[in-house]
């Protein structure tokens, strides 16, 4: 009996609950910073800014800010 009780946490670790983990890890779909219409191509952003008479705001990281880290 004692052996079974000790083994239970290991068994649970071996069986992740798919829905529960998705809910804990995947961020909500309405994150505010993703409401910004980000461009991922520098020249496309430049061309659009020229057309609209706006400056470009560029976020540059080693590892893509929107997708890699």
């Amino acid at each position: 009996m004692k052996w079974i009780v000790l083994a239970l946490p290991l068994l649970f670790q071996d069986a992740p609950d798919l829905k529960d983990l998705l809910a804990k890890i995947v961020p909500p779909a309405d994150e505010k910073w993703l409401t910004i219409p980000w461009k991922t191509d520098l020249l496309e952003a430049r061309d659009l800014a020229s057309k609209e008479g706006k400056p470009v705001f560029l976020w540059s990281m080693n590892g893509h800010p929107l997708g890699c880290t």
């Binding site: 910004i36 219409p37 520098l42 430049r46 705001f57």
Partner: peptide, 26 residues
Amino acid sequence: LRTKFVAAAVDCWYLDRAKDAAGEFY
């Protein structure tokens, strides 16, 4: 950012190295 700028996000690892117009402009 939504209204007054065109916002862009890039991985500088690529643009630091690219020998093309985008890399040179960056």
